[in-house]
């Protein structure tokens, strides 16, 4: 391998290990938290902001119940450090209903009975929200793939698929109207 020319190191800021201020932009609101670097986005949302919609199930990126949308993409908030989310836009299930009116996905989940215990539901909905934001005309296969990173132990999948398609329909008809 070739030698790289070494330049002087730029100055860097070390943060932590103790609690320090972290700025988050969640559901169109600014927050300042005081947390350690090891605070995950999931714990920050749940414990520091009281947004308990995203669930802790495995805490290691193997279930999808903690799914939130960061800069438009669904991600696992348990494998995301809060400190690395500054200057990002974070969207959680709590922001979906607007002015007391349910989002089409929420409405469709109720109508189709697309849940049983409901613990995975916020994650499922956020995955589908990201899909519908990007693709207003999803096929059944698109819907299935969109929630393929969200486990449902009760087995509500068939109805989740139906709810995803139905929500897309509701949104399209709203746009058309």
């Amino acid at each position: 391998m070739a030698k790289a020319t070494k330049t002087k190191r730029a100055s860097v800021t070390v943060r932590g290990p103790h609690k320090m201020p972290v700025h988050l932009f969640v559901n169109r609101q600014d927050y300042e938290l005081h947390v350690e670097p090891r605070r995950t986005l999931l714990d920050a949302l749940r414990k520091d902001l009281g947004l308990t919609g995203a669930k802790k199930v495995c805490d290691e990126g193997t279930c999808g119940a903690c799914t939130v949308i960061v800069d438009g993409k669904p991600v696992y908030s348990c494998l995301t450090l809060a400190i690395e989310c500054e200057e990002k836009s974070i969207e959680t299930i709590e922001a979906l209903a607007q002015d007391g009116k349910l989002h089409a996905l929420q409405q469709a989940f109720i109508e189709e009975d697309a849940y049983q215990c409901g613990f995975c539901t916020p994650g499922q909905i956020m995955s589908l929200k990201a899909l519908l934001d990007e693709n207003p005309n999803p096929t059944l296969d698109d819907v299935k793939r969109a929630v393929s990173g969200n486990l449902c132990r009760c087995g509500a999948y068939p109805k989740i698929f139906r709810a995803g398609l139905r929500a897309a329909e509701i949104l399209r008809s709203k746009k058309g109207a």
């Binding site: 709590e94 349910l102 929420q106 989940f109 109720i110 009975d113 409901g118 539901t121 916020p122």
Partner: peptide
């Protein structure tokens, strides 16, 4: 449809966790 559907889809439902 479930009478507590809206709690389940909004994240309002409070579980023990």
């Amino acid at each position: 449809p479930r009478v507590d559907g809206s709690e389940r889809v909004t994240g309002d439902a409070k579980y023990t966790y």
